[in-house]
Simulated scan of single mutants.
Amino acid sequence: MNAMDGFMENAQGHMVPREQVKEIDFERHRLVMEKVAKVQAMRADLAKLKAEIMDDVGAFVEMSCEQYGAKLGGNKGNVTLTSFDGRFKILRSVAEHITFDERLQAAKALIDDCLREWTSDSRTELRAIINQAFRMDKTGRLNTGAILALRRLDITDERWAQAMQAIGDSIQITGTKAYVRVYQRNDAGGYDNIPLDIAAV
């Protein structure tokens, strides 16, 4: 129902008198809204739980480091805490968001020079790898991992080395995101993630 008594808002934003809404449509709406409210409440609880775990893990790491006279600054770095019996572990990881500035275009130009010269050779696989690395996804974002992987290729051409330097110089850290995952030991001795994704439960 809407704030206007006796009316319901449809998908086009129009106010429809309640008596003109079929009962099955009303019951469907009621069911969806009831379950959505519960999901939203659970999402808020999960956000609070994540914050609690991050804070408590960070405090524990600080306490542990203080035994050695070390002082840390904030929840930085990856850490794994394991229960005494080894059945459970908590992993806190911090991932950096990486983008590239305009120097990436210089790197691409140098790489293209190399590829033009190498086309007479049988390096088609390398061309495919490079083209894939610089291909944007549907949202216009580059594949950061694929671009950084180019720097691990063992190529001695001076232009290639300059291109790899340009890639390194173009890297910009635009932020970080913290993740927390909880694992339980399985019968095989490995660890399974305890899923909090409703689709994985």
Rank of each mutant, 00 (worst) to 15 (best):
Ile111Lys: 01
Val32Gly: 09
Asn143Leu: 11
Val182Trp: 10
Arg87Pro: 00
Asn10Glu: 05
Asn75Lys: 14
Gly69Asn: 13
Lys22Phe: 01
Asp157Ile: 05
Ser120His: 12
Asp101Arg: 02
Ala200Asn: 09
Arg123Glu: 08
Gly140Tyr: 06
Gly73Pro: 11
Ala199Glu: 09
Val182Lys: 05
Val61Trp: 06
Arg28Cys: 08
Leu126Trp: 05
Val61Asn: 05
Val16Arg: 03
Gln172His: 01
Ser170Leu: 15
Ala47Phe: 02
Glu27Ala: 07
Leu142Trp: 11
Ala200Gly: 04
Leu91Ser: 09
Asp187Ile: 12
Asp55Arg: 13
Val32Cys: 08
Glu96Ser: 02
Cys114Gly: 03
Phe84Ile: 14
Gln20Tyr: 10
Met15Asn: 07
Phe88His: 12
Gly69Phe: 04
Arg28Ser: 13
Arg135Thr: 06
Asp157Gln: 11
Ala44Val: 05
Glu34Asn: 01
Phe26Arg: 02
Glu158Thr: 03
Gly6Cys: 10
Asp169Val: 02
Val39Asp: 13
Arg30Tyr: 11
Gln162Lys: 12
Ile173Ser: 04
Val39Arg: 12
Lys108Arg: 12
Arg181Gly: 12
Thr124Trp: 02
Asp113Pro: 03
Phe100Gly: 10
Gln20Cys: 10
His29Met: 15
Ser83Cys: 08
Gly175His: 03
Met164Cys: 05
Thr156Cys: 08
Val94Ile: 04
Ser64Trp: 03
Lys177Ala: 03
Ala70Ile: 11
His97Lys: 15
Leu148Ala: 07
Glu9Tyr: 06
Glu27Leu: 11
Ile173Lys: 15
Gly140Cys: 11
Ile167Cys: 02
Ala47Ser: 04
Thr119Glu: 14
Lys138Ser: 14
Pro17Cys: 10
Gly145Ser: 08
Glu96Gly: 08
Glu62Met: 08
Gly69Ile: 06
Glu96Asp: 12
Glu117Trp: 08
Arg151Tyr: 00
Ala3Tyr: 05
Lys138Met: 12
Arg135Trp: 00
Leu153Ser: 00
Arg103Val: 03
Ile155Tyr: 04
Gln105Ser: 14
Leu46Arg: 10
Ser93Pro: 06
Gly77Lys: 07
Ile147Leu: 02
Thr119Lys: 13
Leu148Trp: 06
Gly140Gln: 04
Arg123Cys: 05
Arg159Ala: 06
Leu153Gln: 12
Ala70Pro: 12
Leu49Asp: 03
Arg151Lys: 05
Ile98Trp: 07
